[in-house]
Design a protein around this nucleic acid. Structure first.
Lengths: 238, 238
DNA sequence: TGATCTATATATAATTG
DNA sequence: TCAATTATATATAGATC
């Protein structure tokens, strides 16, 4: 897995397969050895290959006979219980990979929309965006605004403490930024929010009631959910 | 082996050991699976651990019974032949590590001396250097000069061809640099060399004969050989 | 615990000598 | 074919949730 991401399949090229086999066998035995040393466990590995009449065997301290002996003496059913076959093993890995793919797609979408957001701030037109794009963009912008307002709220609190009780402020261990923001009250904020949403809905040419009726903070992130046909529809401010 | 280079020894911290075990077991089984898939070989792995009453087992397609069966039916002596025990395995790895260390030390020494060389070109005093330092520095400088003279020789050849046989030069596929270096003859070079060596020996306050009597191009690199008490002693020019 | 994250150490595919 | 090198992909130690 380097210089190129190898695909997990039988290597048809004979010499390449043999080279890979030799390298990986070496790496594998090293890993087994390390596991034994680090965790003080008994382990053994047996590898059959067409390049050698004998199987390659590695055994930790107490020898392979001990390990195999224990295994042989185990009732047949017990042996199978913990046995992982190739199919179930691969299924697990496929499921995991799909999960990662989904996460990555969501991440990509968010990055994409962030890019769009900043471009639109430099005046780029939004006309070529789809409805879904606009929806996600709206969500993203609201998330950003939410963070901004939250921060302003925090700064206001600090500022008020400084004005009202000067000595107490000195004891505060939290953030102590010298903010001079114009003190916007929560109610003023909500007016802004509603105004903005009004503009958004007008732009979308949608009836106002579509903008209501969805849950609050519990709403799912819209990114990456291919099946979402419900528009993002609420603004959340603290 | 990350965030910190772990030292290959039994992990005494119980929870850390268990965590490492689980992670590494997973990684190991993945490797075994990949080896089987990529190279189409039969393999199985058995790992005993104190965290589980059952040994963890992985078997490729044809099942562990097949692999173990083959192994069990093999004469005892045959089994041991290919078996690598922990001691010989570690010895191999120690030898390899020592080799790398030596190489690295030599490399470091050369870099160190190169630094010294450039500093001395900017006028820094050489008084605080040991005899060995000076010896290695001298060797290094000579190597550099050797390369320079070789290059000059090449350029002269090209220049002469251009003057003597203009049409032939066009056919030459090699380097075709438009050099106009003053044509220094080999004999002139040797005079310079001897002059330089004379200065060096004077500076060292050593009798002239110490500067003779060692082999030619076959000489070992002086760097990294801690036991070398024979001074570097010849200049090699083409 | 157990899953997840992230910075690093390792493993190794392709290339080169 | 083998060993060495190099650029990348993976594995994983330690931290955090």
């Amino acid at each position: 897995m380097t210089r190129k991401k190898v695909k997990l399949a039988y290597i048809t090229n004979d010499s390449a397969r043999k080279a890979t086999f030799k390298k990986r066998k070496k790496g594998l035995l090293k890993k087994v050895s390390e596991l034994s040393t680090l965790c003080g466990i008994k382990s053994c590995a047996i590898i059959y290959s067409p390049y050698d009449s004998q199987p390659e065997v590695w055994a930790s301290e107490h020898g392979i006979q001990h390990v195999l002996g224990l295994f042989k003496n185990m009732p047949e059913m017990e042996q199978t219980k913990k046995m992982v076959n190739q199919e179930s093993f691969l299924k697990q890995r496929i499921a995991k990979a799909n999960e990662q793919l989904k996460k990555q797609q969501k991440d990509n979408r968010e990055k994409e929309m962030t890019e769009v957001m900043f471009q639109s701030l430099t005046g780029k037109s939004l006309h070529n965006l789809t409805m879904m794009d606009l929806n996600d963009l709206g969500w993203l912008i609201d998330q950003n605004l939410k963070n901004i307002y939250r921060r302003i709220g925090q700064l206001n609190k600090v500022a008020q403490k400084q004005v009202q009780g000067e000595p107490a402020a000195a004891k505060t261990e939290g953030t102590m930024v010298g903010s001079t923001s114009t003190s916007t009250t929560p109610s003023e904020m909500n007016v802004d929010t509603m105004q903005r949403q009004q503009w958004f809905m007008d732009m979308m040419n949608l009836p106002q009631e579509n903008n209501m009726g969805f849950g609050g903070d519990e709403m799912m992130l819209p990114f990456g959910d291919n099946s979402h046909n419900a528009l993002w529809s609420n603004a959340f401010f603290p």
